[in-house]
Design a binder for these strands. Structure first.
Length: 275
DNA sequence: ACGAGGTCCTGCGAGC
DNA sequence: TGCTCGCAGGACCTCG
């Protein structure tokens, strides 16, 4: 499930290859991934458009087109955006939702088995509105511990739920929320307003550490995630709590506990280390 | 303000 | 073997 590190990895893989390329022969096989745009208008806007740049915002891949509009791709659960320098195999072609040629034998393919992912086409003003509704980037220095603490104090929600709320902080999903809370020694169910300044500071530090290490490892692959060249990441081997319910805590040996009590999402934590 | 639950979507594994 | 069913979950929605 692509979160910030996975999307960052994809963007780093793709950006140097996509910049300056022109999208030829765009093909859309399923229209239901589009948001706020009809297939006809989408294809017309994309056809023969040149890519000015590829960036990331939260968990979104943002492809800036020369006219100033942006393709915003949200991968959700099973989306992949992969650049191929060869013909696709049948298995790769299966579930391909959007395809375009880039010249020189390159093909850009958005593939999504469950199609929970979305593609939007936004003009400058729409993008401004869109991005303004998303919280600060955790790796951006503009977010400091004081600001993070002040925001957490405004809610009685479980801190884990607050972490995953994209309006509060951008790009953190279930995997990295679990990992960061473990590293910071914070009980996922603790109410946001019960977070002290030191707790918030440690948690923000843990979020940054986990995200940076996951980016360095090329992201976490459980099943579906692939980077921009189709390769899996390796951070799944480093995870300390996510997916380790019932196994011993790496720090104290206590059996890790998994619950679905917070927002009906799998939360794994250590009773002893997280308070 | 917050929790609960529905919605989207398809593959997979458990159970019979 | 072949079927049904629940589950996976990020974001967004409605309802109480």
């Amino acid at each position: 499930m692509p979160e910030l590190p996975e999307v960052e990895t994809i963007v780093r893989d793709l950006a140097p290859h996509l910049q300056g390329r022109t999208l030829r022969h765009p093909r859309l096989t399923k229209a239901d991934v589009l948001r706020g745009v009809t297939p006809r208008r989408f294809l017309a806007a994309v056809r023969n458009a040149t890519i000015a740049g590829v960036t990331r915002r939260a968990k979104h891949i943002v492809i800036l087109l020369d006219g100033g509009s942006r393709l915003v791709i949200q991968l959700r659960m099973t989306g992949n955006l992969i650049l191929y320098d060869r013909r696709l195999r049948a298995a790769e072609e299966r579930y391909a939702v959007f395809l375009a040629s880039l010249g020189g034998g390159l093909r850009l393919v958005y593939r999504d088995v469950r199609r929970l992912g979305t593609i939007s086409l936004l003009n400058k003003g729409q993008w401004r509105t869109y991005t303004s509704r998303i919280g600060p980037e955790p790796l951006d220095a503009a977010l400091d511990a004081d600001r993070f603490h002040a925001d957490l104090r405004t809610t009685r929600q479980a801190v884990k739920k607050a972490l995953m709320d994209q309006r509060r902080i951008a790009g953190v999903g279930n995997i990295y929320a679990n990992e960061a809370l473990f590293r910071a020694g914070v009980d996922p169910s603790r109410a946001g307003h019960r977070m002290g300044r030191d707790d918030a500071g440690r948690l923000l530090g843990a979020i940054r550490e986990v995200l940076a290490q996951a980016i360095a490892a090329g992201g976490t692959t459980f099943r579906d995630y692939r980077n921009g060249t189709g390769q899996p990441g390796s951070y799944q081997r480093v995870l300390e709590v996510y997916g380790r319910g019932g196994q011993p805590c790496v720090r104290c040996g206590t059996r890790l506990h998994t619950t679905h009590a917070i927002d009906q999402r799998a939360t794994t934590f250590c009773w002893r280390c997280q308070t």
